[in-house]
Amino acid sequence: MHTDWTTTPVTADLLRGALDVERTEHGVLPHRLPAWARAQCADGQLAMAEAQPSGVRLVFRTRATAVELDTLRTKRVYVGAPPRPDGVYELLVDGHLAGQGSVTGGNIMTIDMANGTAETQPGPPGTVRFTGLSDALKDVEIWLPHNETTQLGALRTDAPVEPARDPGRRVWLHHGSSISHGSDAAGPTTIWPALAASLGGVELVNLGLAGSALLDPFTARTMRDTPADLISVKIGINLVNADLMRLRAFTPAVHGFLDTIREGHPTTPLLVVSPILCPIHEDTPGPCAPDFTGLSAGRLRFVAMGDPAERAVGKLTLNVIRDELARIVEQRAAEDPNLHYLDGRDLYGDADSAELPLPDQLHPDAATHRRIGERFARLAFAAHGAFSDRSG
């Protein structure tokens, strides 16, 4: 047992990947949207998604051989379903995975998908511990659970902490759906954007927002105002899931979203990514609904509720969206040479679906996250890609 601990307050300057930090009675709560943006939308799904710290990590330098972090999690429980796995914390030392852990206790949010209700029962904080580290001076990162709201309390180490060095890497700002958020990835460093960022040698700011990639103007303004060297937007699946808009609204909304980003980043490489293959929505509109018939056996699947014939009246499907995104990018690229398009089926397509089908018909599993991340890195960061380091 260590007795000579150094306690370091968790502050914004220790965090990467968070755009706002809220002080709470238990410490600090990282947010991935600023307070002004959160105030413009009362949607509970968005509130939950942006407060889950996907891509957010604590970063510092130390000679510590032991590290402890007190946190208060909010764990989700779905009525009628088996327990969800605990959120995973991952420790990186000089960029390499050196430990994993979880916390106990915490708040319990019970979600009844059939009735659309949620209740939260308060619980006690927990502590994640990492021990047996080298006493050499090293860069330490603690990646927070990508899918579990996490309030950060005390950071304790058995040696002093100093600020991390500037990594000198380009910053990649990415926006997308639950797939970009992390869905069913194994841990926070293997969600596909984190894996792609590691392979591409860039710093990730992840605005993957489960269920909430809906061309919201406040998200575009957030991206406009966030420093970045590379930007990508993955658009489509949530618009179909939610049956949110018709083609008439979609096209100008995409233009407006891109216009807003360009106000703050006029020449930054900007990559528009269309949806990966999702067979239930390729030609069938939304809305998308959960199928509860296998829930008690641990199987939740999603079904498309729309009618393919409704495409004639402007309902969106993934193929409609891909065609329109490709057309919009081609049109705009005539005057914007730093705008690029990537067909999501190049990340996960028919052959991948046959080998690694989406378990719930909507979200990729851990192996598929790895494949998508590796493919994105190969396509985007390669010498010919949208994110190639042309200055190098």
Rank of each mutant, 00 (worst) to 15 (best):
T127N: 04
L295H: 04
I111M: 11
A377E: 05
R76E: 13
L215I: 12
R84F: 11
T150V: 05
T110I: 14
A354S: 06
A334H: 13
V329K: 06
A118M: 15
V10R: 07
P217R: 08
L133N: 05
P125K: 10
T150K: 03
H340R: 12
D365R: 07
Q45D: 13
G201E: 07
E25I: 07
E25K: 08
A366I: 07
H31L: 13
H2R: 15
T117L: 09
F381E: 03
P122I: 07
A297K: 14
F218Y: 14
V303C: 03
P122F: 07
A51C: 09
P193S: 04
L33D: 03
T74S: 11
V103K: 03
D166E: 14
L207H: 08
R16H: 14
I142P: 02
P266I: 06
Q331R: 11
R378E: 15
L244V: 01
T284A: 08
F257S: 09
L247W: 01
A334S: 11
D139I: 02
V240C: 14
I321L: 12
R327A: 15
G256K: 04
V59W: 01
K315S: 09
G132N: 11
A351C: 00
P227Q: 03
A49E: 02
T222N: 09
A242V: 00
I261F: 07
I142G: 04
A118T: 12
D336R: 07
F302C: 08
P275L: 02
E282F: 00
Y78F: 15
D184W: 05
P125S: 13
P357L: 11
G44M: 08
P252R: 13
E310R: 14
R23N: 06
P160G: 12
Y341P: 06
